[in-house]
Design a protein around this nucleic acid. Structure first.
Length: 566
RNA sequence: GCGCCUGUAGCUCAACUGGAUAGAGCAUCGGCCUUCUAAGCCGGAGGCUUUGGGUUCGAGUCCCAACGGGCGCGCCA
């Protein structure tokens, strides 16, 4: 097989050459060695300007205190020599450098997509970040996951996938809060349901867990153990029932997430920190380091030293740790396992906690190595009507219910479709609608249409054409406006994933997937793929296959299926 | 009161971290199926980016203030 021109490689060569030109220009303008700006080649905003553009001359103009247009002109004046694949290079006011690519470049992109398949778009853009641990969901084991946790899990799973796609080494983890008063309350709530089942009517504690799911756990407990816990001592009963409830509920959460396409590398149990003596250990360690101190009989973290607005209690005056101590132990453990960078995704109700946990990372000796993302709140609607969700109203809508109602694909897409820090209005009736209105189907439809073309080729005895297309022959025939627009979009896949991952903005990938679908649908409408001209048909089929690959990769990262038929 | 998020088309949201004429989807108006899936395509209309100052060649984006929305502020988690 002949080696096709590699677009990623040629883009890198182009950037390197432009960088060299900037260095030379810097010299000429009497600037220091490192004065040249980042070239940062991106897609041109308006195709009329060209295919790729750089605003580097504008940045240089500011830095060098020179006219940016003059700089851009100097860079462009060197022409397209040593710029592989570039047709023309132009400087445009106020100082943009615009590149227009020659046809062989576009053919090369399609060839590479065909060759690399599911790996097309992978890069090593973020490979230098070192091992990253991404923690999200981290639910209490007291009931089913809620809608915000659904959003967090979509964000976390897609972000992890994107970071990996861009070359980062990432593990995912969720933390189960299975210690302390909360678990006792869970045990007591379970006991109330259980005792009632066993014929001893017992009230659930005032602030206990009322949900039906606890009653279900009680039934399972009774089925396993009969009524033996009615007579047990409280301490023994609490320990046993707490663990039982936790195991059942965590298992259910795990299944719900799996149905949602979210699987963690590890479920980390808070109780394991206590069991291993890690909680006392970290408190002592912090005391020894002088970043914690004793006051009023309690032990305090000197968090104000690390940007928090007040110091926080680690261990109460009665000797019991606050939640902060096991969290410190947990984050210490994360670092000790070799992770160099931590990302935590919190729900909207925990944003007040960000300064604290950041202070902990700093106190542990890793300042700036913990990043916290907030998944903002979700409001459910059905058309114009807001779905009531307050705890006081008695029912909190669960992730499972949403997935049951709208399906995994729509739920994953809708959750990821907005910037994490934006509040999300989730219209359930739109998400179930199987129509034009639904952006999920729009993207999936693009994929299904391509699969349909392939089927058609097979069914009409054009297997040879299909083979030819898979080899990427005839790619020089691609020149139609919609063909080039589509290829330009495919070209941007790697950069989009890398930049969106870097910016923690996975919603951009959803937008990108929609854009690919839009460009494909336009191409499909304008250009007949399976026509009479064998070479042209082959070229267009190649492009369709390349598009299918990118759509499938993007949908997979989003956790949405890529169907062959709809 | 203090802190974080937020305010962009009728609605839901983008705008790649300060760049070119602020873009999509829905809704609305008008066109396109004898051809590979019309769950599609093409076009129109719709904006003082909440308001007022500032920074600079350039601001939806940065700074200050005001106003509106959400959330948080415990030796609870």
């Amino acid at each position: 097989m002949t080696s096709p021109s590699r677009y990623a490689q040629s883009l890198a060569v182009i950037e390197a050459e432009l960088r060299a030109r900037f260095d030379a220009a810097a010299n000429e303008f009497g600037q220091s060695e490192d004065a040249a700006p980042d070239v940062a080649l991106g897609p041109a905003r308006d195709p009329a300007h060209g295919d790729f553009a750089s605003a580097a001359a504008l940045a240089a103009g500011k830095k060098w205190k020179r006219n940016p247009l003059e700089i851009a002109q100097k860079i462009a004046a060197a022409g397209t020599d040593r710029l592989p694949g570039v047709g023309t290079i132009e400087a445009k006011a106020p100082g943009f450098i615009n590149l227009r690519m020659a046809q062989p470049f576009w053919g090369g992109v399609v060839a590479e997509a065909l060759e690399r398949g599911a790996d097309f778009g992978r890069s090593d853009a973020l490979s230098e970040t070192g091992p990253v641990l991404l923690e999200f969901v981290s639910a209490n084991p007291t009931g089913p996951l809620n809608v915000v946790q659904g959003r967090s899990s979509s964000l976390g799973a897609t972000l992890a996938g994107m970071l990996r796609f861009a070359g980062a080494d990432v593990k995912t983890e969720t933390y189960v809060n299975d210690s302390g008063a909360q678990l006792d309350l869970l045990a007591d709530s379970l006991y109330a349901r259980y005792a009632t089942l066993c014929g001893v009517p017992t009230a659930v504690p005032d602030d206990g867990y009322q949900g039906d799911d606890i009653s279900e756990v009680a039934r399972q407990l009774q089925a396993r153990d009969g009524d033996r816990w009615l007579k047990a001592a409280q301490a023994e009963r609490r320990a046993a029932l707490g663990a039982f409830a936790r195991d059942v509920i965590v298992e259910q959460q795990r299944r719900d997430l799996e149905n949602f396409g979210v699987v963690f590398d590890r479920w980390f149990f808070e109780s394991s920190l206590y069991a291993g003596g890690k909680v006392d250990e970290v408190v002592d360690w912090l005391l020894q380091r002088g970043v914690a101190y004793e006051k009023d009989g309690a032990i305090w973290l000197r968090s104000t030293q690390f940007g928090d607005d007040k110091d926080r209690v680690l261990r109460r005056s009665d000797g019991r740790p606050t939640y902060l101590a096991p969290d410190a132990a947990y984050h210490r453990d994360k670092f000790e396992r070799g992770n160099r960078y931590l990302i935590d995704i919190f729900g909207p109700d925990h944003h007040g906690y960000v300064a604290r946990i950041s202070a902990i990372a700093a106190a542990l000796g890793h300042p700036g190595k913990l990043e916290v993302l907030i998944a903002q709140q979700v409001t459910l609607k059905r058309g114009a009507e807001t779905v009531a969700m307050s705890k006081r109203a008695g029912h909190v809508v669960t992730l499972r219910e949403v997935v049951d109602e709208v399906g995994k694909d729509a739920a994953r897409f809708f959750f990821i479709n907005r910037a994490p820090e934006s509040q999300l209005i989730f219209d359930l009736s739109l998400a179930v609608e199987q129509s034009t209105n639904n952006p999920v189907y729009y993207v999936q439809y693009g994929h299904a249409r391509i699969a349909s073309i392939v089927r058609k080729a097979e069914e009409t005895g054009r297997g040879a054409l299909l083979e030819r297309a898979r080899r990427g022959a005839d790619l020089e025939r691609l020149e139609h406006r919609t063909e080039i627009a589509l290829i330009r979009r495919l070209t941007d896949f790697a950069r989009t994933v890398g930049e969106a991952a870097r910016a923690r903005a996975p919603h951009r990938l959803a937008e990108y997937a929609r854009d690919v679908a839009t460009d494909f649908h336009a191409f499909y409408t304008e250009c007949v793929v399976l026509g009479d001209d064998e070479a042209l048909s082959s070229a267009r089929l190649s492009l369709a296959l390349a598009s299918k690959t990118v759509l499938a990769s993007a949908l997979t990262l989003l956790g949405v299926s890529a169907p062959d038929r709809m």
